[in-house]
Simulated assay, not measured.
Amino acid sequence: GVLNANDVGSAEIIYSVHGVFHQRKINVADIENPSFSTTQTENLILPDNALTTTDSVLFMQKKDSYTIQFSSSSQALTTRYKGLLIWKSDKPNIVRVDSNGKVTALKKGSATITCSLGNVSCHTYVNVITDSYTGKATDFSMLTATGKQRTYRLFKQNAHNYPRYDSYLAWHGCATCSLATVLGAYNDNYSGILPSSVIDGVEKQFTSNKDWTREHVNRSLRGQMPLSLYGISSILKSSGVDNNYVRTYTDSEAKDDIISHLKTGNSIIFEVRQKNSRTGKRTKRWTNSYHTMVLLGVLTNGKVLLCDSVDRSWYNGGQRLKIVDLSDIMEYMFPCTSFSESMYYNGASSDGGYIKIYEIS
């Protein structure tokens, strides 16, 4: 708190006492014989929304670091009072934060980072991811952009743990597993629901009896079809989970839209095919035909969190949650070229695109 006068003029001093901010105006009258006069102390009172960041929710890997960014509306304020910003992590053993807002991920878990200035504060919710989501079904819990905990159950489609539908799910279960993962995470009434219960529950309830019976009773296993993206979107909406099914897009539009949506802390259901959209070549990287998966978030390093119901030999064996480049997925995504309201898959032309999921208000 020691003041040193360097030149004739005036300066404003901001300081905090027990969390209350004050400001004083200092006048330097004579460089050779400095004297000080002060104005009356005033508290620093700011509007409720004066302090905001662009990072409401973050996903990080262990040992990663990232500096939280302020919104454009807060830039001038935070630049002026940078030395008075107070940063705090509610779980410093999981996520550490320094006086500049730089967060460092230490171990798996979630933490709330709070930045305070005067009478206002803002929060960033940080989720630290590790390679430990394995097995037939595993839970991935995170803090959302509102500070609420959301838990996704990530299923293995050939886990042989789904009474009556083991064979169907092993063959065609990626769509059902994706629906179960998202439905259970966004609607507490379906928390932990199994894919087999989805088939006998919301799928049977919100599709016609004729269509449901055709796919699960009348047809042979090889001829049965999975839910379409339209069907998944419709069932989610009927179950109280808001979403937007994007059918047509360009690659650049989709990339920006997907990243922007994932940064809100909400998930995306999408479909890939065997054919590479850029080269035209076929590969078994993601599927032998068509495959539905879920994106759960985007990391601060730009990679995405992918929920995959199939094991991949090139990615740590039985990992349900994979960390990959978005471009590696988008090479196999495809838009719709025709429109259909079929609840079950009836061709690639009407079953492409992706579904953006939104938090229940």
Rank of each mutant, 00 (worst) to 15 (best):
S73Y: 00
E203F: 00
Y165V: 04
T264P: 05
Y168K: 03
W212E: 00
E359A: 05
Y186P: 14
T144C: 03
W212D: 02
N187R: 10
H216C: 02
S191W: 10
I199W: 03
W286C: 13
L51G: 09
G347I: 10
V182E: 03
G302N: 02
M225A: 01
T181Y: 10
V2P: 09
R24V: 12
L106S: 07
L321C: 04
K88L: 07
K281A: 15
V310Q: 10
L51S: 05
R219N: 01
K88R: 05
G265F: 14
T114A: 09
P47M: 05
V120T: 09
N161L: 09
N4G: 13
S37W: 13
R150H: 15
I232G: 02
K107M: 05
N187C: 05
N189K: 15
C122G: 12
A29Y: 14
K255I: 08
G192F: 00
A185M: 08
S10R: 00
R164A: 11
Y249R: 06
V202Y: 02
L296S: 12
G147L: 00
V324K: 13
T41G: 15
D211Q: 05
T53N: 10
G192Q: 09
F339L: 10
Y125H: 15
N161C: 11
G173R: 01
D90G: 00
I323H: 11
S116M: 10
Y332K: 01
G135D: 02
K62Q: 10
A11F: 02
Y162N: 08
S16T: 02
A50T: 04
S309C: 04
L229E: 06
R247K: 15
V20L: 06
V28D: 07
T248E: 07
M330Q: 14
S37V: 14
P226D: 04
S99Q: 14
F206K: 14
I45M: 10
D200Y: 01
H291D: 09
G280L: 12
D351I: 06
A137L: 08
V202L: 12
T144G: 11
D131S: 10
L46I: 15
S361W: 04
N276K: 05
M142P: 15
L227A: 00
T146R: 12
Y186F: 10
T52Y: 09
R312C: 14
F339N: 11
V103N: 00
R153V: 15
M343Q: 01
G192V: 07
S178H: 08
Y168V: 05
L143V: 08
G83D: 08
T104A: 04
L295F: 12
S239P: 01
E42F: 14
Y358E: 08
D55R: 08
A137I: 12
D30P: 07
I360W: 03
V126N: 08
S228M: 07
R150G: 15
T53G: 04
K82M: 08
G1N: 04
I259R: 09
N161P: 09
M225L: 00
T53E: 01
C122W: 12
I31M: 13
T207C: 01
F140Q: 13
N33G: 01
A50M: 08
N209R: 03
Y245Q: 12
S338C: 09
S71M: 04
G223I: 00
S16M: 11
F36C: 00
N6L: 12
F36W: 07
T138Q: 07
V198D: 05
H261P: 13
L194Y: 08
R96D: 06
L154C: 15
A348H: 04
A170Y: 08
N6Y: 13
V120L: 09
G231F: 00
K91C: 08
N243S: 15
A111T: 11
